[in-house]
Amino acid sequence: MKIRKNTLLIMMILLTVTFMFANTKNVSAKVTFNKTSKSITKGKNYTIKISGVKNRSIKKVKLKYNKKIIKVKKLRKNKYRITGKKKGKTTLKATVKYLLLDYTPAVKTIKCKIYVKNKAAKKKKTNNKKNNDSEENIKPEIDWEENNIDKLLVQIEQSKNYKGMIYKLNDYTVFNKGEDGGEDQYGLITSPFYSTIDWYSKKDYDEIINEVKLIVKESKITDDMIDEEKAYRVGRYMVNHIDYDYNVYGQRIYETLFDKKTVCAGYAKTYALICRYIGIDCDFVCSYDNQNKSGHAWNNVKLGDYYYVTDLTGAYFTRNIYGGVSNFFREYSNIGEENIKYMDKYYKMDEYTEKHQIDEVDYYTRCKNEGKVYLKQKELYNLPE
């Protein structure tokens, strides 16, 4: 009997090791750069990402490349900005140390071939008006795999008025260098569309980011939490500490954070910023009925493969009805017919809807039906503060 028990124990250990090895092999194979090769122009930037593993699971990344050809700046553990320095080619090699789903350590080396080319030669000016008009109307080539902010910056860079003053710092900031001794401006990205950016001085920007860091800390957010819990904790903190006030005129992020009162737009912009700061894709979305002079703002939050509707204004007014903060991670129809009808046109464009698919069912139902790990609404309500 004792021999049989020992034999059974050995078999179980062997099966466990075999499973872990197979799991490591399968998951490791998915870790890669989002591009296997990329051509960039000398002096221009390109953002490359490590896909197949979440940022919080990455423990260390070691890079190798020809420093004479390209410059590489770390933006996040899974994201790097590449700048072309000299015409030529090099291979960007990254040795990624990370954790599998069962917290088993894994290592994989991934590569991307980088080709740097010189700037295109300037065309000679001509007095032929027809030729000039046709040249001005040529649309710049855009890497459609980049988000809309990046596409906008490409257009700016290739326009004749571009002076190299504006560029993207990270997923939530665009920097505008002041001209002729003017003040530098920091724009907070709250959606993929440039028109919704709030611009601030360096002083105000630093104050905002420090406040964002404080909110993340006081929300007790940790790297090992799933995105659902992180996004919920941020929203819960906001509706518990920032009041809805009809008399508020300012709807910008600064006033929302420091006056501790706002309306729907202030909630949605600030929530989008904080989510983007902690690595969750989140957009400010708005609708406005010009005839009745009424509108609303909310957020599209990405969890898994889909985006979900989150309305902090609704959460504020219903926070004590259900024993917790609701109106999170809802289905598309939850926006409401009027808001859908008068939604800003940018959020109805194909280039937005194709990459921002809002789920037809709520996040909780999606996870339950597909057997994914998630927290039920009741579990969210009972999370300690």
Rank of each mutant, 00 (worst) to 15 (best):
K177P: 02
D133K: 09
Q291K: 06
P192F: 03
G279F: 00
L188K: 02
A120I: 09
K62R: 06
K30R: 09
Y246R: 13
F19I: 15
K30C: 06
E145G: 05
K35N: 11
W199A: 08
Q158E: 08
I226G: 03
F258Y: 10
L15I: 15
V234W: 00
K64M: 00
I221P: 12
T173G: 13
D245K: 12
Q155P: 04
W199K: 05
G304I: 04
A268Y: 00
N26M: 09
N339H: 13
I82Q: 02
S57N: 15
Y267K: 01
I166A: 03
A121V: 15
L15Q: 11
N382W: 02
T47Y: 09
E228Q: 08
K74N: 09
K79P: 00
V309H: 13
N147F: 01
G235V: 05
K372M: 03
V72L: 01
K42A: 02
L9G: 06
G178H: 05
V31S: 12
Y115G: 00
T173E: 07
I48R: 02
N240F: 03
E351S: 11
D171V: 04
T353G: 05
H356A: 08
K54R: 11
R81C: 00
V248R: 10
K230V: 05
N6L: 15
D243S: 10
K341Q: 15
K73V: 00
T222H: 09
P384M: 07
K113Y: 02
A22M: 14
I48D: 00
K74H: 03
T190S: 02
A231E: 01
D281V: 04
L312T: 00
V263E: 09
Y288P: 06
R319V: 07
I242W: 08
D224W: 02
D206R: 08
K62G: 11
K302M: 02
W199M: 13
M343Y: 08
K74D: 08
T196S: 10
G52R: 06
K35L: 04
T109M: 06
Y232N: 00
G371H: 03
S57M: 11
D223G: 03
I215Q: 06
K151P: 05
V234H: 00
E255M: 00
S57Y: 10
D359E: 07
Y374N: 08
K261G: 00
L101C: 07
D350R: 10
N147K: 03
I149R: 01
V325T: 14
S191V: 01
K302Q: 10
V154H: 10
Y364S: 05
G336C: 11
D102Q: 12
K5E: 14
F328Q: 09
K202I: 08
R233W: 01
S333M: 14
T16P: 09
E145D: 14
K2G: 15
Y167N: 14
L152R: 13
Y167A: 01
N299I: 00
A121Q: 14
K213T: 12
N6M: 15
K113L: 10
V31Q: 07
T104Y: 11
K293S: 06
D259V: 08
